[in-house]
Nucleic acid binder design. Structure first.
Lengths: 209, 209
DNA sequence: CATTATTAGAGAGTGCTACTCTCCAAGTGT
DNA sequence: ACACTTGGAGAGTAGCACTCTCTAATAATG
């Protein structure tokens, strides 16, 4: 197919497809002439994945490129793919501190993590932000969060197919990046539901009594 | 204190403090003249909260203003504060579909949610993105996620103080927006830990066998 | 073969956001 | 008195994700 059909099938504007092509999110089509190229189903899938990483996963175009290219070159290790995905995910921290607290917490839960893991710094950053705001994280709440996170992570890892390295790598990226918004949406939904039954009504009624 | 001290104490550049003042994230100081104003501890706290919402929570300046102002006018209902926080949180969806699947799921778990809840549309959007990418969400995984999300939400709601409406409202915002990155970081950390023990080693070894 | 539409590719332009800089009269500290 | 700081507002900047424009080459059609 040509670029206009690729655009029509995916719903991504032609100009944007060209932009993604230029930025390397999508590999070039098979050139059949100086001003002509052919695209196939793999381009369709790749473009959709790129689009989802950017629009749903919240990755910048540059970050999405990194993740997608790690996906190409990753028959070797799924850890590299996971690392690439983690490095690409927001938030992007400009100033970072030594993740001492985060390391201690991870150790206290028996989690074996690389000391340079971006998630460690993200956790440290988030914890310090809670301090600054006058609401430091308490251990109990953190432990509950950690347990929930661990449960989810187990599901994530269990969901990775062992059929082929390519499929596995793609599944890791999807599981890491695209399931994240699912988790956030579910948390917010659950907050609503829980607050409706345990906070909303009592507080509403308590207003006059 | 004057603006330069406010800046020094919080680590936010004077120019940025002025910008936040202009945008209404931080209330004006008590004017003592045409070119002089006094700020106090409440301004310090407010500035830190604004900064955290923007830099850690990922809110836009406009969204942070909305959340913070809902916080001011919310002795009435914590639901309004929660709703404001949820509406302000990314991702910002431009095109949205009817959240039929999300509604069904919520109902199937017995979650009572408002049909117009932003989180519903976010969930619907995320589910469709998974479809597009050729990896539709399976019910089992969703159920596991939902259970984890529900557990976290219960902790969130339980952590809201009942001392005063102001404190409660602030706690809701902090719990919703600033604990979100904590959860994400923990999930990524757990993914690393779990994948190291159950994916990494086997796959590494299997490379040659 | 003539004509019209489409295309690849690259450069430039746009709209938006979050700052950051510049100014200046008014006020402060010594 | 006089250098220095401040509040406030307007203008400028940088980065990002597109989006438009242009050109020569090709495809489609009669």
């Amino acid at each position: 197919m040509r670029i206009s059909e690729l655009s029509r099938v995916t719903g991504v504007p032609v100009a944007t497809v060209k932009y993604y092509l230029r930025e390397g999110l999508v590999p070039p089509g098979r050139a059949t002439g100086a001003t002509q190229a052919q695209y196939d189903d793999s381009h369709v899938l790749r473009l959709r994945l790129a689009r989802a990483l950017v629009q749903v996963g919240g990755l910048s175009v540059a970050a999405a490129r990194d993740v997608l290219s790690s996906l190409d070159a990753a028959g070797d290790s799924l850890h590299l793919v996971l690392g690439a995905a983690h490095s690409a995910l927001p938030p992007r921290l400009e100033e970072d501190h030594e993740p001492t607290r985060a390391l201690n917490l991870a150790a206290s839960w028996g989690w074996q993590v690389h000391p340079e893991a971006p998630a460690l710094r993200q956790l440290e950053h988030a914890l310090r932000a809670l301090d600054d705001v006058g609401a430091p994280a308490d251990g109990e709440r953190l432990a509950q969060y950690a347990e929930a996170a661990h449960r989810v992570a187990e599901v994530d890892v269990a969901g990775v197919p062992t059929t082929s390295p390519e499929e596995a790598a793609t599944a890791v990226v999807i599981g890491t990046v695209l399931w994240e918004p699912v988790l956030l949406a579910l948390r917010r939904l659950a907050q609503e539901a829980v607050s409706a039954e345990s906070l909303g009504r009592p507080l509403h009624d308590a207003g006059s009594g």
